[in-house]
Write a protein that binds this DNA or RNA. Structure first.
Length: 587
RNA sequence: GUCCCCAUAGUUCAAUGGAUAGAACUGCGGUUUCCUAAACCGUCAAUCUGGGUUCGAGUCCCGGUGGGGGCACCA
């Protein structure tokens, strides 16, 4: 029998085959293969129950017959897998030690795993739209989730064989530039002059501008004038605007570099500003857009809510808005980038906007003879601080992302210094950066993205529970084992016997589960499935490490335990890298 | 007003319609001449409420209560 990367694919195929060749069920049979609670087996088939019900058969009898049919096909080697009927009519599949050993032999490197996973998204070209800060403002906590989740999804997609384009759709063309240009000119500020933190200075200047224009209508008029001049292509304002964006992107880049993120494309809203006329024209020509209350809008008569709630693509004052640029962006991604899939990693509060955007695009693109990509809003909840309210500083300002990352690293440094004073200063700094930044990323990813979550320094930096430090520690311990016996991971496996102890078996089973988890994570774009799994894997390893000695056992035993150490290391590191975390050899 | 999301142990979170609802923290009780105790093991403890669908519901449907968010020109 063949050993598949994802055994459920094989099980599904064999069950369908046996059901039809045995004349038991027709083509409507869905095996419903699921990973099992380890108490029952490795996988289970749930599909016999509804099928038996439908055909008026006793479910347990039907399951037993299906198992007989399966055995007749010769698809299952009894030395590798045990089949049984259980409960009301489930079929359980339990892998024996020889199966686990063989699976682990076949999947012994990151390249192997990636190759095995490659079919998930082969031939698809994804554009992932994430992070998307506004220029002239510093990045703040509100950007963490999009940035961290977006990067992880990109890595997961690439692992699954997709072609991925990371696109940072920055907000570089908003109405904020009126006030900003006005106050800059008034105060004689040069964004490109050297300051320690020019973006922070710009932001303060903007706040001053807002406050002044709020108090004095004449100032507001002047600011509006600056915006109009910018939009009409005024030389001086354009130059200033460009330098503001340059400074902003430089500051963003610092943060992305710390987080290990690199974008393929940074095209802000300004890039699409000369394409809005085409959008107006085409939506009018195709009969989708209409004038309403002075604005150009799209209604969706077929939709209960959006038949009356307009999608505004041109404001009363004639200006475009983000609906317009988002439509232009889709067009560009389809025409120029040949996207088959576009993911928007954006706050759930914008779900109405995306629903309207997608509805509009799905009608409009076919009318102009363009393919319609799969469009998905990968939404996420809010990060909550004390009192269950969105996290803020004491003065009610959003927490700066830079400050947050600095604090994470500082806190990690203090902990590392305390726990492992033997490490040199330089190494402690390096460890602190990986642990601190990893903790912030992991705390975000381990939550179901659609729910809000409570931000807690002590929890994310704890070594207890589902945290980055716990996982990184497990990785470091495994490296330590190999250092101790002067072998590199992957070496010393030649003498391996079959797994025997309960903890060995449990760990080996957990390792094989990786393939199912990867698929589950990608099926709904939810990295927390992978996090939960990695945490369970690290737990299974710790239990094994605690009860079964690796070094110094007889050669076949040490050898097979080294296999478990190496594959645990491999999957923990692969998994953490897919989440966007760096790993350590010692900490 | 209307629409969307949420409600699971004292707390923070899990659970693609499937078997006895899993963890972590907290509490209580253990484990170290031994590969990093930054660890491991045990134990107490939960599906907001009322109906319905289903062989099977934390999960799906309808009503209620409580919380968060969106809803005409900011993104």
């Amino acid at each position: 029998m063949e050993i598949y990367f994802n055994p459920s694919v094989y099980l599904d195929r064999q069950l369908r085959n046996a059901a039809s060749s045995g004349g038991l069920f027709d083509d409507s049979f869905e095996p419903q293969i699921r990973p099992s609670d380890p108490r029952h087996g490795d996988y289970q088939a749930n599909g016999v129950l509804p099928m038996a019900r439908k055909m008026g058969l006793n479910p347990r009898d039907a399951a037993a017959q299906l198992i007989d049919a399966l055995k007749k096909t010769g698809a299952f080697d009894e030395n590798l897998v045990v089949l049984s009927v259980a409960g009301p009519g489930f079929i359980n599949f339990r892998f024996k030690a020889a199966f686990l050993k063989q699976w682990l032999a076949q999947h012994d490197s990151e390249e192997q795993l990636k190759k095995a996973a490659h079919g998930l998204f082969a031939q698809r070209r994804f554009i992932v739209d994430f992070s998307s800060p506004n220029t002239a403002k510093q990045m703040h906590v509100g950007h963490i989730r999009s940035t961290v989740i977006g990067e992880s999804l990109c890595r997961l997609l690439e692992f699954g064989g997709a072609s991925v384009l990371r696109d940072n759709h920055i907000g570089d063309w908003g109405t904020q530039f009126g006030i900003l240009l006005w106050i800059i000119k008034r105060d004689g500020f040069d964004p490109l002059a050297s300051f320690t933190d020019p973006l922070a200075k710009l932001e303060n200047l903007y706040k001053k501008g807002v406050s002044l224009t709020n108090d004095e209508p004449a100032f507001l008029e002047e600011a509006r004038g600056e915006l109009v001049k910018l939009q009409k292509g005024d030389e001086e304002n354009l130059t200033l605007w460009k330098s503001i964006n340059e400074v902003s992107c430089g500051a963003f880049e610092d943060i992305y570099q710390r987080l290990g993120i690199r974008f393929d494309v940074v095209l802000g809203e300004s890039f699409y500003r000369d394409q809005v006329e085409r959008i107006y024209r085409e939506l009018l020509e195709t009969g989708m857009a209409e004038e309403s209350k002075g604005a150009l809008v799209v209604f969706h008569p077929d939709h209960p809510r959006f038949k009356e709630q307009p999608f505004i693509i041109r404001k009363t004052d004639g200006a475009s808005n983000y609906a317009t640029t988002d439509l232009a962006t889709i067009l560009h991604r389809v025409e120029e980038k040949k996207a088959t899939d576009i993911l928007y990693v954006v706050d759930s509060r914008q779900s109405d906007h995306f629903e309207q955007l997608f509805l509009t695009a799905r009608k409009w693109l076919p009318k102009i003879g363009r393919p319609v990509p799969r469009l998905q809003h990968i939404s996420f909840g809010t990060i909550l601080g004390d009192g269950g309210k969105a996290i803020r500083t004491r003065d009610g300002e959003p927490v700066k992302l830079k400050d947050l990352l600095d604090e994470a690293v500082e806190r990690a440094y203090a902990i590392v210094s305390e726990k492992n004073p033997g490490l040199g200063e330089e190494e402690r700094r390096r460890v602190a950066a990986i642990v601190g930044l990893g903790a912030v990323k992991y705390a975000d990813l381990m939550q179901n993205r659609t729910s809000d979550y409570h931000f807690s320094w002590s929890k994310m930096l704890s070594f207890e529970g589902n945290t980055a430090p716990y996982l990184l520690y497990a990785v470091a311990r495994i490296h330590s084992i190999f250092r101790k016996i002067n072998l590199r991971p992957g070496e010393g496996e030649e003498m391996a016997s079959d797994f025997q102890t309960d903890v060995e078996m449990a760990l080996a089973r957990k390792l094989v589960e990786f393939s199912s988890v990867l698929e589950q994570t990608l099926s709904d774009w939810r990295p927390h499935f992978l996090c939960t799994y990695l945490y369970e894997l690290a737990g299974a390893f710790s239990a094994f490490y605690n009860s079964d000695k690796v070094i110094g056992e007889n050669p076949p035993t040490q050898s097979r335990r080294l296999v478990l150490c190496d594959r645990t290391l491999l999957i923990l590191e692969t998994g953490l890298h897919l989440l966007g975390l760096d790993t350590l050899e010692r900490m």
